Simulated scan of single mutants.
Amino acid sequence: MSFCDTVVAIASSIHSFGSVSSNYGSLVAAIIVAGMLFIIRELSIRSKNYSGVFYTMSTVESSSYNPYKGMQLFHTLVLYSDGYVICGTSEKTGDIDSKRGCEYEGAQKIRGEVTGRVERNYLWSTVMNLHIVEQGEKRESTSFMTVKVSRFNFRKAQNAGGFYSTAANTKGRVLCGRELFSEHPTGCSPFQSTAGSQLL
């Protein structure tokens, strides 16, 4: 069967389906709904929402190393995404333990590589899954962040999620947004901090 014969056969099948009762109307309605869902998705979940500079504040809730518990960690992420795949870099810029806060400046910032993927959903929150490989003070560690994205105000909202790090099996919650966190520490060299402020 030639290509033209195949096209004619398909067209005839569609016509036969549409000729029965109101199937044409149902078919047109389905096409319209599919088109509307596509437009809504593309307008409300644009790929540029996932590219640029992001700031995270992670709070440790559990860890096999007690001094880490309750710590707050601050990272700056520079990401590029097509709306699905994410790549970029991270820099750890500060942390706060029970005794003091330390800011990482210049060469003291701990850099990492970021990869990830966006789960773009129609009916519930879109999710950013980020995998970060970071060179700590003593060894390389891996972190995984899952952030639920607020569709219409991601530029300013602090979107919540969770994280896990292989550094002392650390787990906790994370906030992510486009603006710096007011809680970020200023001053204090990390290399002068106590044991409780060692790098994750």
Rank of each mutant, 00 (worst) to 15 (best):
M1S: 11
S2H: 05
F3L: 14
C4A: 15
D5R: 08
V8H: 04
V8I: 11
V8G: 00
A9Q: 10
I10A: 12
I10D: 06
I10N: 09
A11D: 07
S12V: 01
S16L: 08
F17K: 15
G18E: 15
V20M: 13
N23H: 14
S26T: 13
L27G: 15
I31M: 14
G35A: 11
G35C: 10
G35Q: 07
L37K: 09
F38T: 12
F38G: 03
F38N: 11
I40E: 07
S44L: 10
S44D: 06
I45R: 14
I45E: 10
N49S: 13
N49W: 08
Y50A: 05
Y50D: 02
S51V: 05
S51D: 03
V53H: 01
F54P: 01
Y55A: 04
T56Y: 03
S58K: 12
S58D: 12
S58A: 15
S62L: 00
S62Y: 00
S62Q: 08
S64T: 13
Y65G: 00
N66L: 09
P67G: 06
P67H: 06
K69Y: 03
G70Q: 03
F74H: 02
H75V: 00
T76Y: 00
V78Q: 11
S81T: 04
D82C: 02
Y84F: 08
G88T: 10
G88Q: 09
T89L: 06
S90H: 07
E91Y: 11
K92Y: 12
K92N: 09
I96D: 00
D97E: 03
D97W: 01
K99L: 07
R100A: 14
Y104R: 15
E105R: 14
G106F: 05
G112F: 05
G112E: 03
E113K: 11
E113F: 08
V114F: 09
R117D: 05
V118Q: 02
R120C: 14
L123N: 07
V127H: 04
V127W: 02
V127M: 10
M128L: 14
I132A: 01
V133H: 07
V133M: 11
E134P: 01
Q135S: 10
G136D: 07
E137G: 06
K138E: 12
K138D: 14
K138G: 04
E140M: 14
S141F: 12
T142W: 05
S143G: 11
S143H: 08
S143C: 07
S143W: 09
F144N: 12
M145I: 01
T146M: 10
V147N: 04
V147P: 02
K148F: 11
V149H: 04
F152V: 04
N153P: 00
F154M: 01
R155Y: 08
K156V: 12
Q158M: 07
Q158S: 07
N159W: 02
A160I: 06
A160P: 04
G162A: 06
F163L: 01
S165K: 09
T166D: 10
T166Y: 03
A167G: 02
N169R: 10
K171H: 11
K171Q: 13
G172P: 07
R173I: 09
G177L: 05
G177W: 04
R178K: 15
E179T: 14
E179N: 14
E179Y: 07
L180Q: 13
F181M: 01
S182V: 12
S182F: 02
T186V: 13
C188L: 12
C188G: 02
C188M: 10
S189C: 15
P190R: 01
F191E: 12
S193F: 00
S193H: 04
S193N: 05
G196M: 01
S197A: 15
L199W: 02
